[in-house]
Computed example of a mutant assay.
Amino acid sequence: MPTISLRVPETELDIFKAYAKHNNTTLSEIIRVAMLEKIEDEYDLKVFEEYETEKQAGTLKTRPINDLWKELEL
């Protein structure tokens, strides 16, 4: 598995280590999960902004939820 180096102030490293210890996990896992959550949050915000833009422009395409249930055979 590849390795990434990260330079942080000693005080921040102490906080990261304490957080990892408190959550009974590794520092690597804490950083990996935090980065993935950050990426997911930014993606969600982008999708929401696109939704709002389409909604305001009147170009948003919607359909009844019952149509989706039928399509998914639920």
Rank of each mutant, 00 (worst) to 15 (best):
E50A: 09
T59D: 08
T59R: 14
I39Y: 02
K61T: 15
D67K: 15
L60Y: 06
K55M: 06
A57S: 13
I39G: 04
V47W: 03
P64Q: 12
V47P: 00
A57Q: 14
L60M: 09
F48V: 07
Y43V: 04
E54V: 00
E42N: 13
L45G: 04
T53Y: 03
E71N: 09
A57D: 13
V47N: 09
D41E: 12
I39D: 01
R63N: 06
E71L: 06
E49P: 07
G58H: 02
D44F: 03
V47R: 14
W69N: 10
E73S: 08
K70E: 01
E52S: 02
D44G: 01
T59M: 04
D67H: 11
N66D: 14
K70L: 11
T59F: 00
F48K: 10
K70V: 05
L72N: 04
A57Y: 00
L72D: 05
Q56N: 11
Q56A: 12
Y43E: 11
F48Q: 11
E42D: 12
F48Y: 14
D67F: 00
G58M: 07
T62H: 01
T62S: 14
K55C: 07
D41L: 05
A57H: 03
K70D: 00
D67E: 13
F48N: 10
N66E: 14
L45Q: 14
E52P: 04
K61S: 14
L60S: 08
Q56R: 09
W69P: 02
K70Q: 11
P64G: 06
Q56Y: 00
Y51M: 09
Y43M: 07
E54Q: 08
I39P: 00
T53R: 13
D67W: 01
I65Q: 15
I65K: 15
T62G: 07
L72K: 04
K61W: 05
K55T: 00
D44H: 06
L72M: 12
E71T: 08
P64C: 05
E50M: 11
L60R: 07
L68R: 02
K55L: 10
L72A: 13
A57K: 03
K46Y: 09
I65W: 11
D41S: 10
N66A: 15
L45T: 09
K46V: 08
